[in-house]
Structure formats: structure tokens, C-alpha cells
Amino acid sequence: MRIVAEHLSYTYNEGSPFAVRALDDVSLTIEEGEFYGILGHTGSGKSTFVQHLNGLIRVPSSLKKRKKKPKKGQPVPPETVLNVGEFDLTKRDTNFRALRKKVGMVFQYPEYQLFAETVKEDVAFGLKNFAEKGEKPSEEEIGRAVRDALQIVGLDYGEVAEKSPFDLSGGQKRRAAIAGVIVTKPEILVLDEPAAGLDPLGKREIMELLHTLHREWCKTVVIVSHDMDEISENCTRCAVFAEGKVVYDLPPKELFQKGEELTALGLDIPLTAKLVLALKERGITVDCDFTTEDFIQKVLALKGGGA
């Protein structure tokens, strides 16, 4: 499923003194199979954008019965397009339930959404909700799906399935919560700051988990983050949001070439990009793709074939 957004704008509390323009004429295409990163400060509109992808925030035109006719003499605003696969999210009669089954969404601190008595029940929540009417999945099917989901996120079914989700450790809770989203095998998986609040090891484990999911389970993965290292190490392409607009839409290798421009926008750059810049100032050019491994390789090569 391909995600296409054109001229997408969104204002919170429209028409009141609290109005905040969160998205301003955003156009973005995410191809099937990408590991896509969305970068930006708090309040840059990145979370607002991803919540559009499964219809949690609706395109205004999809809520109105009749389209507003533009006044005469005024320029006609460009038409908003928002397609996720075959779903047209600007239409009123879009099947949002079917859409949400295809587009899984993991919110920030997903462990705070756990609620059921056992981990198994919690993970099965989405599975039961998305089941078609009259086709209730059997206990056996549910059990199998939950087992698979827990296994891929790295939890042991036998150990945790009958436990209360509140008795798990922090990292386990997050994994269980992610299992609760991916259990329906969504084609697109969107994660908002999946590694927030974890220690470096936990972060790496979560990113590894996402790669596993990307390989085996969800065709497209979109992560929202402000951690540059996370993006530079993992993504195939990424967009930078600033004040509701998309400023860059490039592969990380090209994006972090623009180290100085990003710093000017008030954004951090990955450690490797900082080192490349520092070396450049001293007249040493390192041409790497900004992953730690590649950077070390290239520097060692410059030093003379690896010491």
C-alpha cells in the first residue's frame, strides 16, 4: 500500500482563539516497502500527520456532507489528496475500520494503553475488534495469532500469556503493547517515538524488533522520531517537518549532508554527521552514509586500510 498526500492542511480548534495550524500544505509520498522516518520538533506537525494515516484525524472534507463552494473571485485552493492504498481518506464513506486493520498505529508510550486482565486478552483485543461480523475467530485461531505476535516481539508465550500486563517489566510492557497492534498483521505499521524513554540497549532492541517486523510482517514501516541517530541508522528515506511543512524529503545519506542547514533549523544531527562536519573543518572529507558502522569503516580506510 502506497501513501500519497497532497496539499494536506490541518488546524486544531479551527475558528476559535485557540486555533493552531498543525499541518500546512503537506505533500508526501511513501512507497510500499519503505522504512520511512519522520523527523521534527515537538509541535512540528509530525504526529498530526501520522494520525491522518489511519483516519484518527479526519480530513475536514471527509466530515462534511456537501463540499463548500469557493467564493467567486477567490483563488480555488488546491484539492487535498490523501490516499492510503486503495482507501481515499477525503471521502465520507471510506471504510475506516477496514483501513485501521491495514494501518497499525503504535502511539507514544504504548504500554499506557494496556488494560486487560491477561496479556493474552490484551493482545487479542484488536483481533476480536477487527473480526468481520459473523466470522468470530475461534479460540484456537486467536491463541495462534497471539502466540505468533508475542513471539515476534520477543516475549515468551508460555511465560507471559496468562500474566497481568501490569506485572511485566517496562520493556516487556512495551513489547506486549506493540504485539497488540501487530497481531492483525497490518500492511503499514506507524510508530510514534517507539523508543522514547528506553535506555540505549532497550532502544537498540526495539529498533531491531522493527527491522524484524519490516522483514517478516509489515511491508511498510513509518517511524516518527526526533532522535537523529535512530533515523540515520535505520531508515531508507525520511521527511523533516518544521512548523507544519515538509522541509526535506530525502534518504538519510543525502539529508545529513546538509548538516549545517539542519542545525540552522534548530534540529540535532546524528553523532556521525557531527563528526563528519568536524573532520571537514580540518580538511578531511569522509563520504559515508552516516550509519555508525559505515562511518568507522570509511575512517579506518582513510587512515590506511584499517589499523
Binding site: 489511519n54 502511539f107 504504548p110 494503553q113 488494560f115 483485543f125 475488534n129 497488540g180 497492534v181
Partner: peptide, 24 residues
């Protein structure tokens, strides 16, 4: 929003169903 993303439905159904939907 998080539960809606997991397919929870807070709008349709009878009273009992709606009350049950509040638990998550």
C-alpha cells in the same frame, strides 16, 4: 485514539456494549 487504532468502537451498539467499550 490508541484503542480506536486497535479497532475499538465507541459509537455503535446497545447500552451494554457501549458500557463494555468504556473499560479499555
Amino acid at each position: 485514539n490508541a484503542q480506536k487504532a486497535r479497532g475499538a468502537d465507541f459509537e455503535t451498539g446497545g447500552l451494554i456494549k457501549k458500557i463494555r467499550a468504556v473499560v479499555p
